[in-house]
Design a protein around this nucleic acid. Structure first.
Length: 369
DNA sequence: GGGCCCGCAGGG
DNA sequence: CCCTGCGGGCCC
């Protein structure tokens, strides 16, 4: 096993243990076929009230949607990990599988996205600089491209992974940029931004949008600061998953809105780069009362992992099992409700003790709310 | 597949 | 204006 692989596994193990200590709702606890049609009662409503500055989203105010025929390009390169690079005829394909049965859109396995499509372009009808859900955009909505997420106000930046303001991040994108991030669906770890050399050297100037790690990340970085702030304010963060993410919860194509999460932890650790530069890491946990996450089918995963080592691609079941083990190791705790797991101090201390490079002080933000 | 360069939205 | 950034198209 290579050194890289060894360190990767170490990081992943540590991240998994931390996620397990958060006590998130697990998919196995939710009836997969069951669709939650109405906002279920007090719990969810409370969340949206607490977490959104805006007035509650009126259901009838739907963001205008382009029809599939309108939004579909004539042809193009598929944004998919399964069919990367293949030229496809979108109109034919989309018409073939339209309409998408709504019954699919909440957690049934499928090789294709089952939720509704958003707009791929156009003028915004909502402000992305808000906390919480966007009126008219339901969890599970997906887009072929990042610009679509931006047009529908779910995630504004076309490239950047983090968007946010004074009270924390509005949204983040999971797109597989970091190999040691762990995605358990209902919780995940995320790596901050910065520490990359996008401009190259003077002799060899570049104009890149992403690049390998070349220095330490810090919480001074604005985006990293925002996410740390999210950890303090517990403002909900919209999350999109992209097809490039290596996870059973990644969509097989495009970018999917997976609902609201909170940031539960923020710390520093050695990243998976050759020099061991520090990266800012965060642990996210999904808010309860949302539609179940779709899981990639075995077939889809098999295709996706055709060229990669088998061990790299885990089935959702395996991940869940490992999580359970990790949970048992961390703490024997009742997970059946998944609601009131606030006594996480023990687990927290334990993790902190393990991690020497943990961030010290969460500096108090001067700005009053 | 990989390398390069580009537009764009957002924040200072 | 400047800078950044888990895209995307194009060329090879």
């Amino acid at each position: 096993m290579s050194d890289y692989e060894k360190r990767k596994q170490e990081n992943i193990k540590k991240n998994q243990a931390l996620l397990a200590s958060l006590g998130f709702d697990k998919p196995t606890l939710e009836p997969k076929e069951k669709i939650i049609k109405k906002a279920p009662a007090a719990k969810k409503r409370k969340v949206s009230e607490d977490t959104s500055d805006e007035s509650p989203a009126p259901r009838e105010v739907k963001a205008p949607r382009a029809t599939l025929a309108d939004s579909a390009p004539e042809s193009g390169v598929r944004r998919s990990s399964r069919n990367a690079g293949k030229t496809v005829d979108y109109k034919n394909e989309i018409v073939d599988r339209t309409p998408v049965p709504v019954a699919y859109s909440s957690g049934v396995k499928g090789t294709e996205n089952t939720g509704p499509m958003g707009r791929e372009d156009g003028k915004r009808t909502h402000d992305p600089k808000t906390y919480g859900s966007i009126p008219g955009v339901e969890v599970g909505t997906w887009w072929e491209q990042r610009r679509g997420c931006s047009a529908d106000a779910i995630h504004a930046p076309w490239v950047g992974g983090i968007s946010g303001g004074k009270q924390g991040a509005y949204s983040v994108a999971l797109s597989g940029g970091y190999d040691d991030d762990v995605d358990l669906g209902y919780a995940f770890t995320y790596t901050g931004s910065g520490g990359r050399d996008l401009k190259g050297t003077k002799q060899n100037p570049k104009n890149l949008r992403t690049a390998p790690q070349s220095s330490d990340q810090t919480f001074e970085n604005n985006f990293n600061k925002m996410l740390k702030r999210s950890c303090e304010t517990k403002k909900p963060v919209r999350v999109i998953r992209g097809y490039k993410l290596r996870s059973p919860y990644a969509p097989s194509e495009g970018f999917r809105y997976d609902g609201l999460y909170t940031v539960e932890r923020a710390w520093l650790e050695k990243g998976l780069n050759p020099k061991g530069y520090l990266v800012c890491k965060y642990a996210f946990k999904r808010l309860p009362g949302q539609p179940a996450l779709p899981v990639r089918s075995a077939a889809s995963e098999a295709e996706a992992s055709e060229d990669t080592a088998d061990e790299d691609e885990q089935s959702a079941e395996e991940e869940v099992e490992e999580t359970k083990d990790a949970e048992d190791a961390v703490k024997d705790e009742d997970q059946t409700t998944g609601e009131e797991v606030e006594d996480i101090e023990d687990a927290e201390e334990m993790v902190e003790d393990e991690d020497q490079t943990i961030g010290e002080e969460v500096e108090k933000a001067e700005d009053a709310e």
